[in-house]
Design a binder for these strands. Structure first.
Lengths: 230, 230
DNA sequence: CGTGCGCTTGAATGAGCTCAATGCCGGTGG
DNA sequence: CCACCGGCATTGAGCTCATTCAAGCGCACG
């Protein structure tokens, strides 16, 4: 189970493996495997929802557009469900887009099959429900952060989250590879603002950057900046 | 079914009645009815989640605090589910608070009972799942709005939503009674800002206010202000 | 008749955005 | 091998929207 819980709040973007690992291999006929290239769009806002995806490998950003701006809502990675935001009783169009941040492997299951599994398998259904509940909690925490926290606070928090969620290499750099563009969209700020605030964090010796890779030097300091949280 | 769909996006804070109406009356033993007074706190952030609520009558605000500020996430009204945000595999504390906006009647069901119903009743479970999916969509739309829209846009959009969701009296005033404080918390702005922007809308002849009651005069104008949406 | 709370308004401040200019680096084709 | 190009990084300046602080006002209520 890849769940994270710590003193700056719980962020859980994974459907617990115990659920997927049991379920996915059991499907033979109804799943399709796709390889997608970095930057490739898996689906877009407005596309018809016809199935559900699971990520086998790689990171996929889930984002929402507003004119020429975007907001990244979530980063789906290994063994995570994707496209569940298309579920709805009132609308069968995706409210969001999904784009590969790097080369990735995903698995596709038709909505019919997914739905019928939901209906006949209460255990699975329950797991998915809990997943949604966790996603909703996270979404609302993030909303409050955007509404009330400073960019510095949001960035600090997100960096801690990235470290926690995706881990670090031996040299201390974050495993997740995000462009500054993406980070700024993730925290809901402009590119330039992100840049300046990131410099502040470097001056504060909270992080360092070499060759576009970010190292968390002082988590406590980041935590400090994202205080009042919970 | 109280669902709304229109050209400024779907906002659905209701669990479709077809689900609740069938389910709730069937419970005899396990539910308790409470009457709550205006301003009464039903549960707070950090409280232990021990059950699930449904609203029979009245409006309840679901909100999240950040220091001395708050953000209203949702307004639960007649026949709506409440407290489902407490569902989680990783945490059994409420991430949000619920406070009655007016005198209300709510129904309480123990979590054990709710959970076992979920597990044995796939139809119910599926409905709840769809409800969560809709809530998640709405949450993320709202997040993007807070991230990218102006206060005027957010206010315009929220007013249209209130009209759509709660309806209007014969004299044109919104049925939902919200203090300016609450509206500002709902749109994620300060009281003073809300005040000024509301005056702008009045000058624009988009709304009018008499005795603290709001009248939507020109929905098209409000729609205009909340453009770029979807 | 005070006291307090919510409403109203002004002024100052500031965080973050926009726009624009420049620098840097890696790829690419001549 | 070099010149050029395009895209990203970097930085400054100015501005705008919204917040903050502060101060009066009106009304309900004990």
């Amino acid at each position: 189970m890849k769940l994270s819980k710590n003193n700056y709040g719980t962020e859980n973007c994974y459907l617990s493996n115990s659920c997927l690992k049991e379920w996915l291999p059991a499907i033979e006929v109804n799943k399709k495997i796709y390889e997608v290239k970095k930057g490739e769009v898996i689906f877009e806002e407005g596309d018809l929802v016809e199935g559900m995806y699971f990520v086998y490998e790689g990171n996929i950003k889930v984002h929402k557009k507003w004119g020429d701006k975007e907001l990244i809502l979530r980063i789906a990675s290994d063994e995570s469900i994707l496209g569940h935001r298309g579920l709805s009783t009132t609308n069968n169009k995706y409210p969001i887009s999904a784009t590969a941040l790097e080369d990735a492997v995903i698995c596709y299951i038709s909505m019919d099959f997914f739905n019928s599994t939901l209906k006949v398998n209460p255990g699975f259904s329950y797991k998915i429900l809990m997943f949604f509940a966790d996603e909703l909690q996270e979404s609302e925490r993030k909303m409050r952060n955007i509404a009330h926290m400073s960019v510095k606070g949001r960035l600090s928090r997100s960096l801690l989250f990235f470290k926690d969620q995706f881990g670090v290499h031996e040299d201390g750099t974050l495993k997740i590879k995000l462009s500054k563009q993406d980070i700024s969209s993730y925290i809901g700020a402009t590119y330039e603002t992100l840049f300046r605030i990131m410099n502040e964090l470097i001056e504060d010796k909270a992080i360092s950057v070499t060759k576009r890779a970010i190292v968390i030097l002082n988590p406590d300091k980041l935590l400090e900046f994202s205080k009042k949280e919970e």
